[in-house]
Amino acid sequence: MTRRTLLWCAAGMGLIAYPLLVNNFWLVQIGGRTLGFGTIALSLVFLVAYGGMLSLAQMTVAGVAGYAVAYFTAPVAGVGLLLPWPLALLIALALATLAGLLIGLLAVRTLGIYTLMITLAIAMAFYFLTLQNYAIFNGYTGFSNVQPPVVAGVDFSRALPFYYLSLAIAAACYGAVRHITRTPFGLALQGVRDNPRRLRSLGYDVARVRVVAFAIAGLLAGLGGILNLWLNGSISPASVGINPVIDVLMAAVLGGFLHPIGAYVGALVFTVVDNFAINFIARERFNTLIGLVFLAVVLFSPDGITGLLRRGRIWLEEKVARLNRRRGRNAGSSSPMQSRQET
């Protein structure tokens, strides 16, 4: 347990000290994007890992929050309504939660591939709505020049404050997910995932548990969506189109569904590969390289990078234990079985 705490402290310190080591590109475009995009992926990992529900509409929910913030803080061409930013953020997050709730209501009675189909349909419907609606979404152009607020003299559009803002929000979301899974609701959700019939006979309203999970995921995705909006400074239908929708799934699959941290690991790998693939291969073929990397991860580690890390650690621990045994040390204290249980 102490080793784990130590690891977390080191990771936290590393993330806080990260700006000292890198330039603005790595700070914002890799770091900030990983944290914001990772939070959207986190909402998906939460749904899949604890609720067993695979949704493709998380980017859509993030888009709802993004569009709401843009609509209320950066009106263009007669579209939008200028409000104080705290109110705008509140409305945006409420709308994202509501969107999650509504998607949950629609999707909750389906399972597996049917949930996937329904949420994909919702995502595409929202994309075409933003593309063709001019009164609220400003059509093809969307909203540009959306700046984060300046709070108490701190301008969050600058690289360093933006990174720490992203880090704080991502850490809070991550902590919230870890906490929720240990609450009675979280345990009920995992029960619903494993055996809905048994939960129902115990008196739980299975549908309601699932809908609430969708609403929570909506709130998380909304927070990620706002960070994403501020990173890009603009939002348009392309931000909620099929590519970003699939990207979220890709990041989550890359990271793996074993552990919520997988969302951020996946987002990091996705962002780095996406940005640098073109440096290593002919410029017309770089998407092939991206595809091959993803294929390799999915092929060789179906449970993503976190699965790979976990297997690596177990393998290492077993080896160490064997080594210890061979040296005639106290072999019983760190047997492979025990270390596996610890994880």
Partner: peptide, 19 residues
Amino acid sequence: SSDGTPDVALESARRLIEQ
């Protein structure tokens, strides 16, 4: 490369300039 959307164009421009 970009895919024609402002988000990706900005990302690639940031890489070229800041990195």
